[in-house]
Amino acid sequence: MRNCGPSLIKYVLFAFNVLFALSGLGILIAGAIVLADVSEFNHFVEGRVLAPPVVLIVTGLIIFLIASFGCFGAIKESPNLLLTYAVLLAIIFIVELAVGIAASVFKKDLEMMVKNSLQESIKRSSSEDTMAWDNIQRKLMCCGVDTPADWRTISANKTLPASCCQPQYIDTTVGHCLDSPALGKDKYYQVGCVGELKKRIDKNAVILIGVGIGIAFIQLLGIALACYLASSIRRDRSQ
């Protein structure tokens, strides 16, 4: 490495930090997409479900700052700055690892938490609950917590809302299904919303995990590279 000269050291670390900055942009975008998707149903999910994408967005912003710091350390050819850069990468890596572990543990209780939230909401059937249910049933094409029958057994007014009706069967004059039994399989959605909402959250979790693993590998490479370059600079200067 000593024969390569300081200029190559600059180029190597600069190229890495360009990649690192782009990875920060990727993790920020992924977090924003997942947050926008899940927040549509925040009436039924606790804030803990929104925490992982928020953490990723913040991490993405921090990664931009750290990448800039790494470029500065390479330009200055400062072993201390490079080692500080490596420590910052390690801290971010530990934070991401902790979030990943917490998300995995929380995932086990996710379905029960969502189900309880849906059941409490359908029992209240307030105007706010009704709007939230209309939103989730239309977008996820589902009805009730587990089945459409939940509206008959759990809700306050014991009536299926119009959002349970498949769009092609809605009579525009009344805004509801006509000529169908109360729980008619021919016109009402038959899938419960708890399963569909969990699928949506699980799909987003796969995105977050995939992006997180990719970023983790890049960070480990950055830590090793920064430490190696700092050691090389010190070795060159000591001769």
Rank of each mutant, 00 (worst) to 15 (best):
M1L: 11
R2V: 14
R2C: 14
N3D: 11
C4G: 04
C4E: 06
P6K: 07
P6M: 12
S7Y: 03
S7N: 03
S7E: 02
L8G: 05
K10R: 14
Y11C: 10
V12P: 04
V12T: 15
L13C: 06
F14Q: 10
F16M: 00
F20Q: 00
A21R: 07
G24Y: 03
G24M: 04
L25Q: 06
L28K: 05
A30C: 14
G31M: 01
V34W: 01
L35Q: 08
L35T: 13
L35A: 08
A36M: 09
D37C: 03
F41D: 00
F41K: 04
V45Y: 00
L50K: 05
V54I: 11
L56S: 05
T59R: 00
G60R: 02
I62C: 04
F64A: 05
F64R: 00
L65P: 08
F69T: 08
F69Q: 02
G70E: 00
C71Y: 10
F72M: 02
G73W: 06
G73T: 12
G73R: 01
S78C: 09
S78T: 14
N80I: 15
L82P: 02
Y85N: 09
V87P: 13
I92R: 02
E96W: 02
L97P: 14
V99E: 01
A102M: 10
A103N: 10
A103I: 14
A103G: 11
S104G: 07
F106H: 08
D109T: 14
D109F: 09
D109G: 12
M112T: 07
S117N: 11
S121K: 01
R124E: 10
E128Y: 11
T130N: 13
D134F: 12
N135W: 07
I136Y: 02
Q137P: 13
R138C: 05
K139F: 03
L140Y: 07
C142M: 08
D146R: 06
P148L: 06
P148H: 04
I154V: 15
S163L: 01
Q166H: 06
Q168D: 11
I170F: 04
T173E: 13
T173A: 07
V174I: 15
G175K: 04
G175F: 10
H176S: 07
C177F: 01
D179Q: 12
D179M: 12
P181N: 08
P181F: 13
G184V: 10
K185S: 09
D186A: 11
K187Q: 09
K187T: 12
Y189W: 11
Q190R: 05
V191M: 03
G192R: 00
L197T: 05
K198H: 08
K199Y: 13
K199E: 08
D202T: 12
N204P: 09
L208W: 03
I213L: 10
Q219G: 10
I223G: 01
L225D: 04
A230T: 09
S232N: 09
R234V: 13
R235C: 14
R235V: 15
R237C: 11
